[in-house]
Structure formats: structure tokens, C-alpha cells
Amino acid sequence: MADEILTNPRAERVKAVRALSGQSVRKRAGRFVVEGPQAVREAVLVGDVHDVYVTAATAQRYPEIVDAARDRGIRVHTGTAEVLDAMSPDAQHVVAVASLTSHALADLVGPRLVAVLANVRDPGNAGTVIRAADAAGADAALLTAESVDVHNPKVVRSTAGSLFHLPVITGADLADAVASLRSAGLTVLAADGAGEHDLDDLLDVAGNAPEGVPDLARPTAWLFGNEAWGLRDEDRALADAVVRVPIRGRAESLNLATAATVCLYASARAQR
């Protein structure tokens, strides 16, 4: 049942939702904010959501969100446009509050494709890689402790709902994560523009790779580095092999999210 209409943009409830944009507040509350119709739609279907906030207009525009929330016993609150804007100016008047997600590498059973983000700081890039991992059918995404907080509103928004589709493991030590992935039977490949192996060449021999050449048809964890400086030498050295995405034209390089998408889809194709 809907609550009374929220009309005061300075109300404590509104301030509490807005405050979840801060990492320290999220940790104390154990909750984070989900912004926009696409992300909220996925959150109410499979996430641990406490509240949904809409305007009368967005409730009519996205009835499936309201219906799904109510079917799962999630509280739906209607507010004015000013109230929703005060909660989040980027949410298109659709906001949800959910419990922080938590996954462990040990919980993965028989993973075949994992995206590992080391020192990835840009929220948009991190969210886009998680979305690409989801689209490519990856079993998980993993962010090291030095990477951006996965519950940062910009990360959540950039995943377009994929944060709720696959396990996203956070706070990992890279060396420990690589060791765990390798012990689970995954080949660890580092994506780097100076890699000794060409991704297209690896696709050509996938499933029948000669000795000493990574086989993309095998279970694989892809290691992606920082947007500005890539992978540190010591991080790159953790991988079984270093792979470059070929540049056919005159572009100097690919950005992180684009390169990650190409690599993940190459593995997904080879594993089919």
C-alpha cells in the first residue's frame, strides 16, 4: 500500500536517501541508492530492496516497477518531483534503496569466465565493465580493494541493472584473488596493449591452442588495470599470459571498458 505523498524536499527521509551517495553513510547504514528506471526495475525483481520512490507521473510511466515492487512486499512511496530531485537529480524520478550486496570468491562454483578489475577508479568504467561481463555471460566480476566502491551511485547507474544479475566481489587483494582463481582451474590473462599475444590470433586457435599459447576456450579470468596507467608490473606478472587487443586503425588505444568488452566477448565466443 502506498504511503502518503512526500512533499517536503528537506524532510529527514529525503535527506537520508540523498546521504547514501556518500560511502561512509552507505557503510554505516548497510544500504545504497539505486537510480533510474532500468536499474530500479532490475533491483525490484531480484535485489534486496527496502523502498522505492516515484512520482505520480513515473508510477504511471513504469507500472511494471511499481507492480513488481508491491508483489515482493517492497514499500512504494510517491513524492513530488522536487522530492525525487532532492533524493537524486540523476534518477529520472525513480529511486530505490537496497541492502549492500556482498559476495565471496569462494562462493563461485565452476566459474568459466571472470572479469577482474585492478585499481579501476572511474565509476563509469567500472560499471560498464560489470555490464559487459553480464552481457558476455561471465560468472562474476571482481574489484580489488584499490578500485572504486561498487555501490557508488555512478557505478550502480552505469551497470544498468547488471549489478543485480551476477556476483560482484569487492575488496579483494589481487594476488590472493589470482591464486584462488587459478586454483579453481582458470587461466589468468592480463589485458595490456604491449601483450605478447594477439587476441585475434588466440581466437584463431581457440580449442586447439599449441603448447605455451593461452587457450581462450578454457575457463579464463581476465585482468584489467587502471584507466590511466594500466596494470602495474607486479600485477601483470601475476597473470599466466599478457594479451593485447589488436588496433587495426589509427587509434592510439582503446579505453578500459571497450577493451574489456572485446576480451570478454572473445572468451565467450571461444567457450561456446
Rank of each mutant, 00 (worst) to 15 (best):
V46F: 12
P89V: 11
V40L: 07
R26C: 01
A132I: 03
A257K: 02
T58M: 09
A2G: 04
P167V: 08
G185I: 04
R28M: 09
V129F: 06
T258Q: 08
F224L: 14
T128F: 03
D192R: 06
A16K: 09
P123D: 11
D48N: 11
A172S: 13
L256C: 08
V213H: 04
A69W: 03
D198L: 03
S99E: 11
A160Y: 01
A39V: 10
T220S: 11
L189F: 03
A81D: 15
P123M: 10
T101W: 01
A136F: 01
A57E: 15
R28C: 07
R61K: 15
A206C: 10
P219A: 00
V245S: 02
V17P: 00
N8K: 08
A237I: 06
R10A: 12
V33T: 08
G207K: 06
V188D: 07
V46S: 15
H93V: 02
V52Q: 03
T55R: 08
L231I: 06
V40K: 00
V205T: 13
G230E: 03
L174K: 02
D201G: 11
D85Q: 15
A96W: 01
V52S: 02
A104Y: 07
A43S: 05
D3Q: 11
E211T: 13
A179C: 05
V97Y: 02
P37E: 05
T7N: 06
V17Q: 05
Q38N: 11
N255C: 12
T258R: 04
S21H: 04
V83P: 05
A59I: 01
D48E: 13
D48R: 14
A184Y: 08
S180K: 04
T159G: 11
V94I: 01
D67V: 11
A184V: 02
A270H: 03
R236L: 14
A145Q: 14
A98T: 06
L20S: 09
A145M: 05
K154H: 14
T80S: 15
A104W: 02
R72S: 12
I169R: 11
A91E: 01
D200S: 12
R26T: 04
R121L: 11
L163V: 13
L166K: 03
A257Q: 07
L100D: 00
V156R: 08
R182Q: 15
A29E: 13
A177P: 00
N255T: 11
S267F: 02
R13E: 13
T261S: 15
A16L: 05
L105H: 06
L45A: 15
A217D: 04
G207H: 07
N255S: 09
M87Y: 05
V66I: 10
S183K: 12
G124C: 05
A104N: 10
R131Q: 06
A179E: 14
D3I: 07
R61S: 12
V95M: 02
E82C: 07
R70S: 15
A118R: 03
